[in-house]
Design a protein around this nucleic acid. Sequence first.
RNA 1: GCGACUAUGGUGUAACGGUUAACACUCGGGUUUGUGGUACCCGCAAUCAGGGUUCGAUUCCCUGUAGUCGCCCCA
Length: 427
Amino acid sequence: MTRPTSNGETAKLSTEPYKGVRDFYPDDWAKMEAMFDRLRETLTLAGFEEYQASPLERAELYEAKTSEEIVSEQTYTFTDRGDRRVTLRPEMTPTLARMVAGRRRELAFPLRWFSIGDRFRYERPQRGRLRDFYQCDIDILGLPEGEADVEALVLAARLIRDFGATEQDFVIRVSARPLLNAACVAAGLTEDGVRSYLRLLDKKDKMTTEAFSAARTAITAQDPLSFIEDAGRDPVVAAEKKKLLDRLETVMGRGVANVVFDPSITRGFDYYTGMVFELYDTNLENPRALFGGGRYDRLVSLFGGDPVPAIGFALGDVTLADFIESHSLPLDTGARRPQIYLGTPRPEDIPAAQAFAVRLRERGVRVFVNLTARSLGDQIRDAAKRGIPFFAAYGADEIANNVLRVKTLSTGGETGLAIDALPNFVR
RNA sequence: GCGACUAUGGUGUAACGGUUAACACUCGGGUUUGUGGUACCCGCAAUCAGGGUUCGAUUCCCUGUAGUCGCCCCA
């Protein structure tokens, strides 16, 4: 494609997608849909309902709860023709909170909701980080801490297992904000100190022990982690720790053995109020968080009215796809591909083949009909290239004999079928 | 925002500063006009942009642009 330039010449328009975003050709999208379909299957079996919203949101939605820096530098924000400030959603949770708050009097709580869609962040792209990526957000709203927290952890394990992962492939690391806060208070930290300490804790795994304790000493003389290890020194820490460990016991009792307490799990910023967790890939030398989330009991009340307690977590498409690939997990990407290629010996056969295709489709068979003048040999080649598993020519011979010779491309075998008997050849 | 590395057909690679820029895959056509995957033949198609050094630049230098990977950040 070309476009005229100011000097009257033509310049080639780039076929590259915009920086940090991806094109999904049918094969790519089939893989995405295969992942999404499996998530939907697991989630709907668990009683979850899917919701959706526009990626366009009022900028104030994020300005209200997030830091200035994040909104101004890491979102796509613009002014529309009506002078409204608009942001492309960088995450789903504020939208969810807005939707729930808007109908809180009529919704049947507790809600089990999920949503799959893309999120936009204006950041420098690098490995595993794009400007437009897909996420699945899963939330339980309207229940205080307790069973809902257990369900969230068990569901996270179920989701990844349903992709074929075993317990050796992942681990769920859990902590709790109240526990961390209590330990920080016991260690004498101020509010600002707590924030910088949590930020440091989040990076603990990437640092050497020496570097961590040096950085920690700069913030506080007493190590909050020591209060968690030796919980007897502070009654609040002891109570929070027991509560968390009891919950992990419960989760293990529900068949999820690979869940551990890890105080270095902090989950970034402010809105978490209770349990926080991340599900990690155990394989690779570079273990990454696949899922992350926690309890956020105050977010919905930002919109006024009674608070709606909530817990939720999210997973991204890039890390999930990496996980599936690195563990060689099966993913059926052919589910929506045509099942049979109807070849036409001569162009004159096309109308009859089209009519026959309609009859097959009425029986639920996904049919591809050749419309070119290519030879049958080339049509078979074409079918193979398209990944269509079965091939059958439909022309004068077939009509005269009432027999369709259905070829299985993978094996080369043929089965003769009476045309009137129709499509028992597809699984 | 900071830094490192990279840039050759559609894709992946090659070419001591010196012939017509090579090879593989893909794609199109043919050997084969109602039954494919093998084989063989033919063909399409590239040095990111601008400047510099040089008799001569894909190769060396500078700037720009783009990409990748780190740092920062990660709601």
